[in-house]
Each structure stands twice: as structure tokens, then as C-alpha cells.
Design a protein around this nucleic acid. Structure first.
Lengths: 335, 335
DNA sequence: CGGGTCACTGTAAACGTTGTCAGCCAACGT
DNA sequence: ACGTTGGCTGACAACGTTTACAGTGACCCG
């Protein structure tokens, strides 16, 4: 692989001249250099450039799981903006595991100019090290308990959950189960808050056995749904805290031949790609995903460009309740 | 951010000694160095290491679109193996665009030790440059027309498509439409081959207006499906060449209130995450996805380790026809 | 024709690491 | 007492760039 020295030798100039030519400065031997570059098929070594300049033109992205359609969509938004601005994207999955996340961060610090992170828990301390190391961080969909020291692009979790709960309450439901994510996580905390607020305003209180943590996982939610069905007083509606858990619940209901919404209504936070094709089409809290990624990346790249340490910016995106057919009035028999 | 010099100074030794200590060699001042490292919170600069060693411990991954659940699953497999072997993953989407792909490759050559690539077309010449640059490449799900010069992890496209077609033929269908991807793409070519072979054996020939290219895109497939329905002799079954197009077709059928499988049967290549929850549950050609990614990455990392230029390896994974409820006998009226 | 300006150029020193090399010292054998 | 070994060490040169600095020559002006 040819280096700048080879080009310089061939063009009969110094490396400095080649370097300058490449950066667009006016150079007498431009033609010769251009020819040499072409003949040798030279392209500058990015690693050497990084070492010299201290910039890697690379962004680290840590999400729980790209397989989750929400994060896949977010990743797409991130990547689009990234490449449009000549940055690259180093992607890693934390699997919702704070320890693994920490390893990944430590590994990535030196290789990136900035970091997009959806932390596994709000108690996470690892990101503070990043800050010390001078690596700008933007939190995506989740943030730290420590307060708003970092930039973040979030979604109106409380508002979305409240809308979903109010919708169910409006239909006449009183026994509403909530299969949520871990409450030490921004979205789960916010969603619970909105959910409880709506219930409270309607004079309702959730039974403890209806207020569950499904760990944002399909299989856990699946089991919890089965357990809910086995209860002496099963709920007439289930609100799920993310897309994966919605799938788990729907599969459980299908297995047990529970009719939706005749027997049980289901609302999910997050749309499903195939939401409209499901049996029945899913009522859900819809929200921008690609846009959320794009926004986060733009925020980060701006932050990297202007080194002026502006105070942290928090962007909160709105949600939309999409009413399809998985929700209806509660069954008479159980009321 | 402290460097190895800072550590050396603090420990009262030379940088060489620190470097040796860090690589695990026996060093007299081990205690002092350990202490200095801890106190300064030093960690080696990966960029400098890369420059010196010529290795980046990074793998470039170029797929059409991470948002496609198949590639999301593949990406997960890739990443798992990657991290298990202390490599990182640079991810980019080509959007099925050969030109964009070429830009990405050129950009990534110097930053990676190897490359996983799902080329946009089989005519693609860009990967040959990678080979010249000494960057090992493993093709994923797709390969080049130029013959088998590269490693590749593929799937038995012809076999899967044949099974799907035979299933439909067995049910009595004779007018089967095929919405395929671009035939200058490995999977689309193979799938067409298997499809046509099965029809041929049954003494059937597809009408030209039933043999379509949906570009692997949901929206295009959607339009094509609408066009098929408007035909004087619409097909009684549709076989779709990938997951996105299956979705497009299903949505079109739903819009037009066409009953599946009463009016039209549908089989798709690729499962859908929610395949079993759809109305009706989807009959499809299922195949390993996470495993395919994991396999490809293992192949690549082995290739990087052993520099012995072994001859290219091609791995072809099997498929499985999952019969659910979207296929049935053709409607009487139309036969 | 001397001096000054201008536009460009080459030399060389970084960036942070690793690896080669020669050198040092203690321990050992004679 | 002295050479030899062996284990460890530090100085220094890379790796491929960029860039500060100090030229260099062409050109113009008086």
C-alpha cells in the first residue's frame, strides 16, 4: 500500500507538498502530484491522520440490541446523519447489561470522537468517565439519574403512557395490568409515571400483581402474561412498556386462545413494523424512531464541532396514540 | 489524557518498560508501573497502537439496510462474535446502491482489518480493490458474478424457493406470481432459478406479467401487488423474494380486501419476526440469520489470523419451509 | 541592479506506541 | 579474579501523517 512518501518521490516533491495538495492548497506541482496519486492508487492512511490530529471521525454507538426494531430504526437515523457528515459509526450492543456496557465504553473511548449511548440503567456511572476523557456524549432514549449533565434526545414517555391509559379507562377498563421495563431506566420510569397518573385521576389504583417488570424482554413478558391470565381476577386490559414485550404478550394470548380485544384489550408503547397487519391490528403509542436517531447524531456532531461547552440540551419528542383494533370495551362477564 | 510517557515518568522507568509490562512481560518495576497506571487512569491509545502495528482490530460491515430485520439479526450475530474476539465493528448501510457502497468501501479500507459485505449487485467490482489492498473480505448472503474468489456465507436460495413453489403447486396453484429482487443479485438469481425449476417440472410456465422485480423494497412490491390484482387473469398465489416485499404484498392485499388464503395464497422467502401473529400466520421459507452472521464473522476472523492464503471457502446454509396459514388451495371460481 | 514582496517549497519535529538493539548488573562457574 | 551467561533495562528508530518554520526563487519596483 503506497504512502505519501511514495507519492512525493514519484512526483519529485516533498511529502509536505503532497499533503498540502491533498488538503486543497495551491501547489505548483499539482499536475505531477495528481498524476502520482492516480498512478499509485494512493489514499491517505486514516490511522496516521487520526494519530496526528487526535480526531478519529468515528462515533461510538451503544444500544441494548439492534435486533429490536426500534433501535434498528434509530441506528439507521444515526448512520444516515453520520455518513452525510463524513463520520463513521462503531456499533455495539450492550444487551441491557451495565457491566458489558462498561467494557464497551472503556474499549471505545480512544477510538471515537463522540458517543451515542442508551445506558442500561439510570444508575450507570461509566458515562462520567467519558466526560472526564473529553468525549462528548449524547444520551439516546435514556439518561442518567444524576441529573441533566449530558445532552439527551428523549421521548415523552409519561405523556404517551398517559394517553394509552386514558384510552383504556375511557373504554371502561378498571383492571389494567402494566408490563413495564425496569424502573431504573428512563423510559420505564416515565411510562409508569404517566400510567399511574392517569389511573389516579380516574380514581383507580393498580393491584400490585398488575404492576410488573418484564425487563423489556419478549420472553419475560410472555411468562408474565401467562401468569396474569392465571390470576383469580385477571385484568381486562394489558399495557406493555415496549415493542418486544408487546410481542411476548400477544404470543401468550394467542397460545391461550384469549380473544383480543373481546376478552382482553392490549395497548403497546412503540409501534410494531407490522402493527397494522396483526390479528387484530395493534393499538399503540407511536413515536418517531429514525428521526430520533438522526436528531441525536446531529446534536452530537454539533457538539463536537463547536467546542464551546454550551450547557446540555434535552430534546423531548412527542408521541401519538394510534388506535387500531386491539382495544375495546371490557367484557361484560367480568365487570 | 495521560500517555505512556506520563506513566513511565511517574514510575521512574522508560516507556519501553511500561509497554512491556502492559503486554504481560516480566518487569522488575511491575509494582511501580501498576501503581502509576492506576493513579493516572492510563489506558493505551488505540490509534497509536494501530499505526505501529498496522492492525486496527476493527471489522467493516456493509449491509443494504439494518432496518431490515434479516440484516438486523445478521448484524447481531456478527457483533457477538466480533466482541467475543476483541474486535470492533464499523457498520454502514449501502441502501442497495452500488455507488454508495463503493464510497463506503473506499472510506473504510484503511480503517479495518477485514470486511463483511453484502454487495449491492453481482457485477460490483469494488471488492476487488479491497483484495488488492490486502483486506480480507467475506461475502454475506450475496457474492460476485466473477466467480468464487472470495469467502462467502450463503443460503440455499434455489432450494428454498423450489420448496415454496412445490408447496404451492402441490396445493393446485397454476398461476403463481413471483415478486423477486433484482436478478443481478445472488439471492434473487438463486431464488428465481429454484422457482422456475419447480414450475418447469410441473409443466408450468410463468406468464411474463407474473415474473416481477420488486427491488427488495416494500413499496415497490406493494405497487406490483396492486398491479397483479388488476390483471384480467390475476394469479392465485404470490411468492415474494424477501421479507420486506412480503410485507408490501400483505399490506396491498389487506387494502384491497383480498382474503388470504381464500382468494390468494402468499409465501415469502424470509420469516417475519411476527410471522406467527399475522392475519393469517405466514407460510414462509425460514432460514438461520443470527447464525449466518456469526458464521461469516468467524470465517473472516480466522482468515485474518492465519495469513496462509487458503483457497476461498463457501458455506451454504439450509432453509426450511414453514407452512402456516397464508397458503391454501386456489379458489374454485378462478381455476 | 539592489531590495522587497510574494507564492510556494522542503526540512524536520511532532502524535503515542512497539520493537530492535546494545548495555547493564548480578550470579555463576572456572 | 575473571569471563560468561541470563534477565532485565533504556535509547532510539520506526509507523504515515500534518504543520511550524525557515528557506527559495521569481518577480516587481525604484
Amino acid at each position: 500500500m503506497p504512502t505519501i512518501h511514495d507519492v512525493a518521490a514519484r512526483a519529485g516533491v516533498s511529502t509536505a507538498t503532497v499533503s498540502r495538495y491533498l488538503r486543497g492548497e495551491k501547489v505548483r506541482a499539482a499536475d505531477a502530484v495528481r498524476a502520482a496519486v492516480a498512478e499509485l492508487g494512493y489514499s491517505p492512511n486514516a490511522v496516521a491522520q487520526s494519530l496526528k490530529s487526535g480526531r478519529t471521525a468515528t462515533i461510538g454507538v451503544v444500544v441494548p440490541d439492534v435486533t429490536n426494531p426500534f433501535f434498528a430504526a434509530v441506528a439507521k437515523g444515526l448512520e444516515q446523519v453520520c455518513r452525510a457528515q463524513s463520520f463513521r459509526m462503531l456499533l455495539a450492543n450492550s444487551d441491557e447489561d451495565a457491566e458489558r456496557e462498561q467494557e464497551i465504553l472503556a474499549d471505545l473511548v480512544h477510538r471515537v470522537d463522540g458517543m451515542i449511548l442508551a445506558p442500561a440503567t439510570e444508575q450507570d456511572r461509566a458515562p462520567l468517565h467519558l466526560r472526564e476523557a473529553g468525549v462528548p456524549v449524547v444520551f439516546l432514549d435514556r439518561e442518567l439519574a444524576g441529573g441533566e449533565l449530558f445532552d439527551a434526545v428523549l421521548v415523552d414517555n409519561a405523556g404517551g403512557a398517559r394517553a394509552a391509559a386514558e384510552h383504556l379507562i375511557g373504554l371502561g377498563h378498571t383492571r389494567i395490568a402494566f408490563i413495564n421495563g425496569p424502573v431504573d431506566t428512563t423510559p420505564a420510569r416515565g411510562r409508569r409515571e404517566g400510567f399511574l397518573a392517569a389511573l389516579d385521576e380516574a380514581g383507580l389504583k393498580p393491584a400490585p400483581e398488575h404492576d410488573l417488570d418484564g425487563g423489556f424482554r419478549e420472553d419475560t413478558a410472555h411468562q408474565l402474561a401467562l401468569r396474569l391470565l392465571a390470576l383469580p381476577h385477571p385484568p381486562t386490559a394489558i399495557f406493555t412498556g415496549n415493542n418486544l414485550m408487546t410481542v411476548g404478550v400477544l404470543k401468550a394470548l394467542q397460545e391461550m386462545r384469549v380473544r383480543v380485544p373481546a376478552d382482553i384489550s392490549v395497548v403497546g408503547f412503540d409501534d410494531l413494523t407490522l402493527g397494522s397487519l396483526l390479528r387484530p391490528p395493534l393499538t399503540c403509542v407511536h413515536r418517531p424512531d429514525v428521526e430520533q436517531g438522526a436528531l441525536a447524531m446531529r446534536l452530537l456532531l454539533n457538539r463536537i464541532r463547536e467546542q464551546a461547552p454550551d450547557r446540555p440540551r434535552r430534546i423531548v419528542l412527542g408521541t401519538e396514540l394510534v388506535v387500531r383494533e386491539s382495544t375495546g370495551k371490557p367484557p361484560r362477564a367480568r365487570r
